[in-house]
Design a protein around this nucleic acid. Sequence first.
DNA 1: TCTCTGCTCAC
DNA 2: CAAGTGAGCAGAGAC
Length: 475
Amino acid sequence: MDLLSAQFLGYEPVHIEELIGKKGKNQGSMRDVELEKIKEYAAEDADITFQLKQVFVPLLKEKEVQPVFDNVENPLVRVLTDMEFEGVKIDVDFLKQYSKELETEAKRCEESVYAQAGVRFNLASPKQLGEVLFEKLQLDPKAKKTKTGQYATGEDVLLKLANQHKIVDDILGFRELTKLKSTYVDALPEMINPKTGRVHTSYAQAVAVTGRLSSNNPNLQNIPIRTARGREIRKAFVPREEGRVLLSADYSQIELRIVAAISGDPNMCEAFRQHKDIHTATASKVYNVPENEVTKEMRYKAKSVNFGIIYGQGAFGLADNLGISRTEAKEIIDNYKKEFPNIQRYMDEQVNFAKENGYVQTLAGRKRWLKDINSSNFTVRGYAERNAINSPIQGTAADMIKLAMIKIHNEMKTASWQSKMILQVHDELVFDAVPGEVDKLKELIIRCMTTAMPLPHEVPVEAEVGMGGNWLEAH
DNA sequence: TCTCTGCTCAC
DNA sequence: CAAGTGAGCAGAGAC
């Protein structure tokens, strides 16, 4: 859904691009298909449900997904429409000020790079940067190239050169600062709808193949949080009015809980049932030490393995990721498989199921078709096999939060609350709340998120909620 | 002006 | 060969 289609659900039409007098740069094809279809069927005065089925059924492939359509996607349309319509307030003054700071800092990094390189060039061009680093400065005689023959200058490549030349810090600094400035700090104020004074994202319901939502114009699902400078940007996401607060609720380790539950692995299920720190518990098993003797490094490595499992990562990837030898990586993975035997079995089962049936599915019955699963090409087949492992996990998490959103939205609507659900970021929901409703809202959110879709083997689902004067504080 | 590429942000 | 799902920016080059 997007804001435009709101008019067919009884809202006044608000079209961001028209109001700003500027066309969106990246008009997703789904959005256009959706709009055309809706216009077409609206002209025939057809029922909205029917209209949307015309849109989604061909995309999600036939009737077998009907339960997912009827129980999840169709009810979710109204929820997303409301969220898009409500939008989120942005503190423009804060961003304007921050933009200047980023500009100054970026300039300093840039000048420092030119001074150290002994030439001036366009630092924002990976092509030019590669030539400077690997031809003029000769930082790595075995420098990797991209498929188009340029030198690769991605973050991972540069980090490996960091102890060789001080220039690397300034290059990475420049990259971080200009990324933040161009993608968020300068772009967001431009996206404010003059009528509402807020930014209204569009959620795409049928773009991500796993069943996740995606967000665009602007994308509010990739607002920085990892670095200190990036995190600042979240301070600009504020309640719509004086006196209101932002509330943020996160699922805790939802994908790992889903792995545990659908694989039925006894050790991992038990760790969750006992409310243990899952990465510490994993490290304890893998390294065969008591939990109180798990070191930071052991936990860090176990965490990496846990995430790798979700993606179908192998020893090579783990070694690369952790900067350890492939022998050590293989040892860790072998131990992991031994301690959590059902996880390996689950992965094999998913791949075999896909090979026989041509698809895999989530707990709610959402399917992902994998046409390459029996390919004779190793690379192509390997990719499909990792999809077979990952999709049910990522997709089940998507099913769960969507069901929670529907329940929360229904209850808020029925009781005519003034607080609004405004954002979804895969495992997080954000609310713009009035103070008088905060307590009951917190209760509602936690209750719905944790019970919307109970997991097998009594694996508990947990969610945390925070509150504050901006998105950063709410975390 | 459009499209592709490389890169980087999120979960 | 080697880690899943997305969106958006600037550069580079085709037209």
